[in-house]
């Protein structure tokens, strides 16, 4: 089948308009989960069909797309999604954060600060932050309507009671613009401070759960905590074995079968750029 037999960006115009309306509503009510009629995509849920639909709805022919999975451009998931849009929308793709206009992500916020010319699209598995303690959807909607978020603090209370500290390390709950409680998707809490006040528009798509939510540029986003147990950013103590960064989020990789390990930047593009800059400095006359 040739690319021409698809509508631009795969979805038909009707569906894209419907998704854009949901996105606009989501931007108007920061942090609020807007229901939308999630479409079948040619890949299974869990592959980020929510993020893919959002990306499909906002992509224009001049956009430059980057797709990351856990910070990496090279996982099967990231490669397939990038290839998918290269085929069905014929857009340029990149691995360079700074060059992208749309970045679809799973589980990370890039280390490179984003600009107001960029949109970050998150793939979301479970949009409801209260789901863990309150499985009834009617009840969680009521709690959101009344901004009754004591329950979320119960989760953090339980963390401290059982572990001595707030053990939640991913999908760390935030309050958006002082109104809605939001799950930032399973990004490490290290990334939470980057979500608040971000210059880029941030969109969140949950395909199976049929929800879209958004954080407009420069929105106040606060990680929940207690006065005596304040929110703490967490990263593995260590430096990147490749670029030497000591302030990035690190992945631990096993290097052999004898227990050898090292840390490397989870954001592979950021790591690469740092190494390029370093080697350019070493060889100034090239």
């Amino acid at each position: 089948m040739s690319a021409a037999s698809y509508n631009f960006a795969y979805l038909d115009e009707q569906s894209k308009r419907m998704i854009r309306r949901a996105i606009l509503k989501a931007i108007a009510i920061p942090g609020y989960q807007v229901p939308f009629a999630s479409r079948e995509m040619p890949m299974p849920y869990g592959w980020g069909t929510g993020g893919i639909q959002v990306t499909a709805a906002i992509l224009g022919p001049d956009d430059v797309l980057k797709v990351i999975d856990q910070g990496s451009d090279d996982t099967t998931n990231a490669v397939s999604i990038r290839a998918f849009f290269a085929k069905v929308a014929d857009v340029k793709t990149t691995t360079a954060t700074a060059d992208a206009t749309v970045i679809q992500t799973r589980h990370r916020v890039p280390e490179t600060p984003l600009s107001d010319r960029q949109i970050l699209v998150y793939q979301v598995p479970i949009p409801e932050p209260l789901r863990f303690l309150e499985p009834r959807e009617t009840e969680t909607r009521r709690l959101h309507a009344l901004a009754d978020y004591g329950l979320m603090h119960v989760k953090l209370y339980e963390d401290i009671a059982h572990h001595g500290h707030i053990a939640t390390a991913y999908a760390y709950p935030v309050m958006v613009a002082g109104r809605y409680l939001m799950d930032p998707s399973p990004v490490p809490k290290f990334d939470n401070p980057k979500i608040g006040g971000c210059a880029a528009l941030q969109l969140f798509g949950a395909g199976r759960e049929k929800r879209i939510y958004a954080i407009p540029p420069y929105t106040r986003v606060v990680s929940l905590d207690f006065a005596d147990y304040p929110f703490e950013r967490y990263r593995q103590q260590g430096t990147c074995a490749l670029c030497g960064a000591d302030d990035t989020f690190l992945d631990e990789v096993v290097t052999d079968d004898k227990g050898g390990r090292m840390f490397i930047c989870s954001d592979s593009d950021y790591c690469e750029k740092r190494r390029e800059t370093a080697s350019a400095k070493e060889r100034p006359h090239d």
Binding site: Y149, L151, H153, V154, Y157, A161, A227, D228, Y229
Partner: peptide, 16 residues
Amino acid sequence: GGNIGERLMSAGARHY
């Protein structure tokens, strides 16, 4: 403790 604390936290208590 979490059960008892919920009502306090709903009422705005933020000191563990």
